[in-house]
């Protein structure tokens, strides 16, 4: 029954025009970034390396597909939560608003299974978005700009990663980025369980992300204690895969915090959804 419901959710998601909005938005955004880099990428690189190039010269193709993919990922990963929430925030509340939740819940499928199927479908949709971003950023980036070593600018300096050392880092980076977006997806589905209108959970999800990001950015002592536990703090953990040496401890910590968020949010959703009276 669970997988039948998951299949149903896929059909619904694929039939909704708004589901393609995310893919379209990513395509347009990545297209714009790739175009900008193709036209003026060298000067962007020069801006980064100018401080070093007073003494040193960099030989080789700095602006290559690997760097382009990194720039795309860095620029877009903060916007993709909106695209994720746009679809996942509607999964439960949209059905409540349209009345179909009533129809679904008079069927023998358990509420837990129904909600889990929505979480799974939301996760698959999020995965599709991240894979599409990966295809556009990494594959199209490499087709247009070629391959090469990846030069990454971190707050503690430059890291130059060898070409053969980059693909697994992207795989890891995208996996962690997926997990971060999955937390967003879980949050918006959770909020969706508490609402009977489609827009509310989407707006609240974004508001929470913005609020947590601000708390994470503000240099206020009061926030120091909570900052490491905010999921938004770990949304950029994919970058850790591009550090040398690999900060495995930090990555694992981020993964645990993101997973704990997901477990709590799913648990809360299941508890509320199972107790909820359907009066719409």
């Amino acid at each position: 029954m669970l997988w039948n419901s998951v299949y149903n959710e896929f059909i619904k998601i694929t039939a909704k025009p708004r589901s393609y909005l995310g893919l379209l938005a990513i395509t347009v955004l990545v297209g714009v970034i790739l175009f900008a880099l193709k036209v003026d990428g060298q000067s962007m690189i020069a801006f980064v390396t100018s401080s070093f190039e007073q003494t040193l010269s960099f030989q080789g193709t700095l602006l290559n597909g690997n760097l382009v993919a990194f720039i795309v990922l860095q620029m877009l990963i903060i916007h993709i939560p909106l695209l994720v929430a746009l679809v996942t925030g509607d999964l439960v509340s949209g059905e409540a608003a349209s009345g179909t939740i009533r129809m679904l819940l008079t069927k023998p499928i358990s509420r837990t299974q129904l909600l889990l199927s929505k979480f799974i479908a939301g996760a698959v949709y999020t995965l599709c978005l991240i894979i599409w971003l990966g295809i556009l950023a990494v594959i199209v980036g490499k087709v247009l700009f070629g391959t090469g070593d990846l030069m990454v600018l971190n707050s503690d300096g430059l890291v130059i990663l060898q070409e053969q050392d980059v693909n697994w880092r992207y795989a890891g980076g995208f996996a962690v980025a997926f997990l971060a977006l999955l937390t967003v997806s879980t949050l918006s589905i959770c909020l969706s369980c508490f609402s009977n209108n489609s827009i509310g959970p989407i707006v609240v999800t974004m508001a929470i992300i913005i609020l947590f990001t601000i708390i994470g950015t503000l240099d206020v002592k009061l926030f120091d204690a909570i900052r490491p536990y905010l999921f938004t703090t770990h949304m950029a953990s994919w970058r850790s895969f591009f550090e040398e040496p690999l900060p495995l401890k930090e990555i694992i910590k981020s993964l645990i915090i993101l997973l704990v968020h997901q477990v709590i949010l799913i648990g809360l959703s299941l508890y509320h959804f199972n107790k909820k009276d359907i009066t719409t």
Partner: peptide, 10 residues
């Protein structure tokens, strides 16, 4: 219940 609500886009 009350009125049959369906997925309009399907």
């Amino acid at each position: 219940i009350e009125k049959p609500d369906f997925y309009k886009y399907l």
